[in-house]
Design a protein around this nucleic acid. Structure first.
Lengths: 211, 211
DNA sequence: CCGTCATCTGTAACACAGTTACAGCAGACC
DNA sequence: GGTCTGCTGTAACTGTGTTACAGATGACGG
């Protein structure tokens, strides 16, 4: 059963090296040959241990998601607690930028959110939402958080754009509101925007006055 | 200046063929050799006319965005009008699914939204928002719409997930709310969710009572 | 102690991708 | 005619995922 004398390559070692490679140099840098070189072995060993590239990426996603810490709500009101969950989740995803790219590339955004879903369900209940209404609340928050992070990440690696927002709003194209033009020409404060948007959404959905 | 006797390959013809290829078989199917074969020419001609693959994709995005129709708000209240803009934009993006993939791959989500930004600014103004407040409103709606479409598209091409929402919520893991468990085990009605979320966000941000 | 077998590794290839060096063709212009 | 520019084709280079196949290595049964 045992392998050669020296390294005794394991599936875990392969995943570890792959994770390191992705963390340091991004998902595109994860090539089978490069990974083999990093491990000082041959490509075929990797295929034997973890299967092809697809399986490797899937395993990486699973591994990283499992490694994310538990999310604990904090705050008094349900609104505060949900907001804290959203912020924690965004923080986790931003701390693992490669995960977002990986997950999106593989169509697994749902998987990325599952760990937080239970927590949100509890908070929805605590806020008095039940049944389909609660489910819709959880889904709305989920889509907003994940969507925001996707857009955010996307913008960060965006090249120079033509025409970009600065050029577009430089002149008086905003009618008679120079403050607005200035604000739109400035780069986005994504952290602040995130909090504002989530708070607005949550406040509205938790409001008691029916839809 | 003129070319060979027959086709007279032009940059426009190359872009048209590339757009068709992407529309029919997705961005991955757009290979330089495949495109050349479709056009009955050689790869080098494509390089001469439009540059490499990156430039080709950029041109495609530009072309498609330019081809999107104008967005006209409809409805009486600002809330209704903004919601109509959001729905129209989502509809446009969903009618060009390849565009979403292309744009995300190239980090150009901002470019995707620019045509609608002016309209939203006008509506924000009509609703009484000014300056930084209006800018934040526009950005929040922008992030939500684009983010939602990204998540939506991502889910549609998602493979079977382990564990998925159905398995997760099949049992009584939702405490004592079987209706909620059922709702979460069902597939998401993204159209409805989109409207609910955008309306909630807009309503809250347009409310007069300060932050 | 020898043989067999499952496990693991290495060599070398295949098909396909983007890209480009370079030769050649066709019309324009002098 | 000669030359020059615009455009096209051949064939190659590098790098990708993947796999057929031959070995190596150690455990186990006789």
């Amino acid at each position: 059963m045992a392998s050669g004398a020296r390294g005794a390559l394991t599936r875990e070692a392969v995943l570890e090296a792959a994770a390191g490679l992705v963390r340091r140099r991004g998902p595109d840098a994860l090539t089978m040959r490069g990974l083999a070189a990093e491990l000082g072995t041959a490509v075929t060993s990797i295929y034997w241990h973890v299967g092809g590239r697809e399986a490797l990426l899937d395993a990486l996603v699973e591994r990283t998601v499992a490694g994310l810490g538990e999310i604990r709500p904090s705050g008094r009101t349900p609104e505060q607690r949900v907001l804290s969950v959203a912020r924690a989740l965004r923080r986790q995803l931003r701390d693992h930028p490669h995960l977002v790219a990986l997950v999106h590339e593989r169509g697994l955004t749902e998987r990325m959110f599952l760990p937080a879903q239970r927590v949100l369900v509890r908070e929805a209940h605590a806020a008095g939402l039940r049944g389909a209404r609660a489910a819709e609340f959880v889904r709305a928050v989920q889509f907003q958080v994940v969507g925001h992070v996707l857009v955010e990440r996307n913008r960060e690696r965006a090249p120079a754009q033509h025409p970009g927002e600065p050029e577009l709003w430089r002149a008086g194209s905003a009618g008679d509101d120079p403050a607005l033009a200035r604000a739109l020409a400035r780069p986005v404060d994504t952290e602040r925007l995130f909090v504002t948007a989530v708070r607005a959404l949550v406040r509205s959905l938790l409001a008691p006055h029916g839809v």
